[in-house]
Design a protein around this nucleic acid. Structure first.
Lengths: 107, 107
DNA sequence: TCCACATTTCCAATAATATGGAAACGTTAG
DNA sequence: CTAACGTTTCCATATTATTGGAAATGTGGA
């Protein structure tokens, strides 16, 4: 992952509505959720919701697929993994250390 | 972790200079790095650097300790862990699914 | 004490982002 | 074809973040 992508993804999540949307999508899993349902659940007007969904999509954290009259959004788990990896890259200069050991256990 | 904290942490990282600083600190490990060295390495003027370091500190991602005339900054690995946990909470509604299995392997 | 150095605070200009109403667009059912 | 529905685009407004020079603050050495 490159710096620009990471910044875009982090920026996308650094906003109340988008963070709520993302977490809702994580909870929904690969099955996803219709845009309208998200808006209703979070009390967001259509224009605002669309704006934020577009942000999450541009950041690669969510993607929408058309299904009939609905657009179903779901979280992109792969990209989140890449993001987390980017944030802990080269931890402690690659030497053995507490954080590195912890990161090791994670993988 | 609460929504507000997460947003602050994500927002702190969603900026080129701060992301660079944070990754530098991750690489430096618990030993940390003097503010001046960070500024020199990244080519940031003092005021700008201080502004960004304050942002990372407020977000709980870095902390500074006075050491002689220097202020040494280091990454807060614990808070980053909490943040990652927050982002993947209740994945797929707690049911077994691909992302959940992956997350399981991580812990 | 006084000076040199490291870092922070103050401040004003500039830039980027969020909000939501109204209108446009695409899709399906009748 | 037409109407109804879901979603997006357009747009103006409001809010928040970023930048860096200059001055203030803190710290240790001479």
């Amino acid at each position: 992952m490159e710096s620009k992508q990471a910044i875009q993804a982090l920026g996308a999540l650094a906003q109340e509505s988008r963070l709520k949307i993302y977490r809702l999508l994580v909870e929904a899993g690969p099955q996803g959720m219709a845009a309208g349902d998200i808006g209703e659940k979070l009390g967001l007007p259509p224009a605002t919701l669309s704006f934020h969904l577009a942000g999450l999509s541009r950041a690669g954290l969510a993607k929408g697929r058309q299904e009939g009259r609905f657009v179903i959004y779901s979280a992109d788990f792969q990209n989140m993994d890449a993001l987390v990896g980017y944030l802990t890259e080269n931890c402690c200069g690659g030497q053995a250390c507490a954080p590195a050991a912890k990161a090791q256990r994670r993988r």
